[in-house]
């Protein structure tokens, strides 16, 4: 997939994702060792975007399993199309029950879900299992089975084995600790807030109208906010949103008024805004 760590950086950058050395190295290794990659970190640091960027960089199809409380096998792996099966049976073709049964449990009536889709077919794919920590613990057994040797047994169809393993990314905001067994299957990558230099580049890439000086000020203020012990520290997503807002407001530099009026874009909680305003010595909001 990739010839070197630099190749990863360069090709991700072409698709609009700026990888830190840690990100590029780990992606390279995950591809080289053929292991799933578990990416942990706060919201908005580009975990989901990383998987999408890898898919773009490799011309691979992105198959995404979005996890949520209650996601189950029928949503993650496959399901039979019951409605269609019923129709088929009631339409009757005068065959025996055995024949009918074989027919309705065939490919035609199968609804493959992301995990099955990802291991079937020969085209290159990126499997994104997003926000894994939101799913219930029970689903981890299924993930272990699938990610172990990339094969799944469907009782009515037999065993499906990947002929071409997807590049797999699991993301987690660490709201719940994933099981040790699942972690051991994966390479581990923690994405934190980027350093100032990288964040400036991300801002200027995502919001081309922002000049270097404004990008620098924005990143400095966001850095200060992150050091403040807030309920929710601003992430890259907020930095980019803020830069975009400033551009829309026509602000070419940061000053007290501009910061005060737009702080709500960066901070989501009212008490965080108040605290930050006090620390930044802004006049009362």
């Amino acid at each position: 997939m990739f010839t070197s760590v630099d190749d990863v950086s360069a090709r991700l950058a072409e698709t609009g994702y700026l990888a830190s050395p840690a990100v590029a190295t780990t992606v390279f290794l995950a591809a080289r060792l053929g292991k799933p990659l578990l990416v942990e970190g706060p919201a908005g640091v580009g975990k989901t975007e990383l998987a999408k960027a890898v898919a773009r960089a490799c011309d691979a199809r992105l198959v995404r399993l979005q996890c949520y409380e209650g996601v189950d096998e029928s949503r993650a792996l496959y399901e039979w199309n019951h409605a269609k099966q019923l129709l088929r049976i009631s339409a009757g073709r005068g065959e025996t029950w055995d024949e009918a049964r074989t027919d309705i449990f065939s490919e035609e009536f199968l609804l493959p879900r992301p995990l099955l889709t990802a291991i079937r077919g020969d085209d290159p794919k990126v499997l994104l299992i997003d926000e894994t920590d939101k799913a219930d613990v029970e689903i981890e057994g299924l993930l272990l089975e699938v990610l172990g040797d990339f094969q799944v047994t469907v009782p009515e169809l037999g065993t499906v084995t990947a002929t071409r393993r997807p590049f797999t990314v699991l993301t987690s905001n660490a709201t719940r600790e994933l099981s040790e067994a699942l972690r051991r299957r994966c390479l581990f990558l923690h994405i934190g807030f980027p350093d100032a230099e990288l964040e400036r580049r991300i801002v200027r890439l995502k919001v081309p109208g922002v000049d270097a000086a404004l990008a620098e000020s924005v990143v400095r203020v966001v850095g200060a906010l992150r050091a403040m012990d807030l309920r929710k520290a601003p992430s890259v997503a907020e930095t980019v949103d803020w830069a975009r807002t400033l551009l829309a407001l026509g602000a070419s530099t940061l000053d007290e008024t501009v910061v005060r009026d737009s702080l709500g874009v960066v901070l989501k909680h009212q008490d965080d805004i108040q605290k930050a305003a006090a620390k930044l010595d802004l006049d009362a909001l």
């Binding site: 760590v5 840690a22 660490a174 972690r183 581990f188 923690h190």
Partner: peptide, 27 residues
């Protein structure tokens, strides 16, 4: 060991990240 093999020893910071990715399971 496979990570070392794939990354080589030339760049120490890459090696650090590669070993961390393979040996650690959490932050």
């Amino acid at each position: 060991a496979r990570a070392v093999e794939a990354l080589g020893l030339a760049d120490r910071e890459l090696l650090r990240e590669g070993l961390a990715a393979t040996l650690l399971h959490g932050a």
